[in-house]
Amino acid sequence: MKEVVKLHIPDGYLGPYTCAFFYLIMIPIWYKAFRWLKNLKPSQVPLLGVLTAFSFLVMMYNMPVPGGTTAHIVGGTIIAILISPWAATVSLTIVLLIQALFFGDGGITTYAANVFNMGVVLPFVGYYTYRFLTRRLKLNEIVSAGIGAYVGIVTAAIMAGIELGIQPYLQPGYCPYPLRVSVPAMAIAHLVTAGPAAAVVTAAVVWYVKKSRPDLFAMRTITKTRG
């Protein structure tokens, strides 16, 4: 049996209660994230724009997962580390909306859940993992960025697996697979394929930016300590 191994949950897989729950959860998060945009420095405006485009495109690179499914990376941790996890929430809110409306990728009813997984869980877990490793364990920034991206995407995948897997218990008729099937399926694809890819890409981008614009990193630190 093959599984849905996509971070994008399509319409029909989540019941109305789950969908409504995530729209409710996302309202205050969206409010906070959009307001956060005011903290964006003028020089960061084009940077976040191009990173948003990067996130859209990087998700088009489907990678084969052993067992016959595919996975892709998201780019959320890159944005979180280079600018802020709130910036990543804004980016993914935009990207997932365009993907759902114009390309039928993801869903309308599941939109808020998808934004929560990829635009909140992923960048915040990725960012705080990175921050813990660099600040507490004094680990190398580039290695920490890679590990952060890995942990971020795997956590988001498990989160999606949980949302899918609780459906049979909540209300039958939607995603038919229980937790013991959906969580491992989501986790494994991201542990073996998307996770390592996210780690390498994130580490490479952070390495490049740190090398050519160390001031961006300094700026980020100041923004963070203030906010």
């Binding site: 319409d11 029909g12 409306l101 114009f102 390309f103 039928g104 869903g107 309308i108 039958p172 008729g173």
Partner: peptide, 22 residues
């Protein structure tokens, strides 16, 4: 091997994608 009425109802809620599946 079972009917999924909920999924049937919601799955095609949005079919106006201009470039479906990219």
């Amino acid at each position: 091997g079972q009917k999924l009425p909920g999924m049937e109802k919601l799955a095609d809620i949005w079919n106006h994608a201009v470039l479906p599946d990219y």
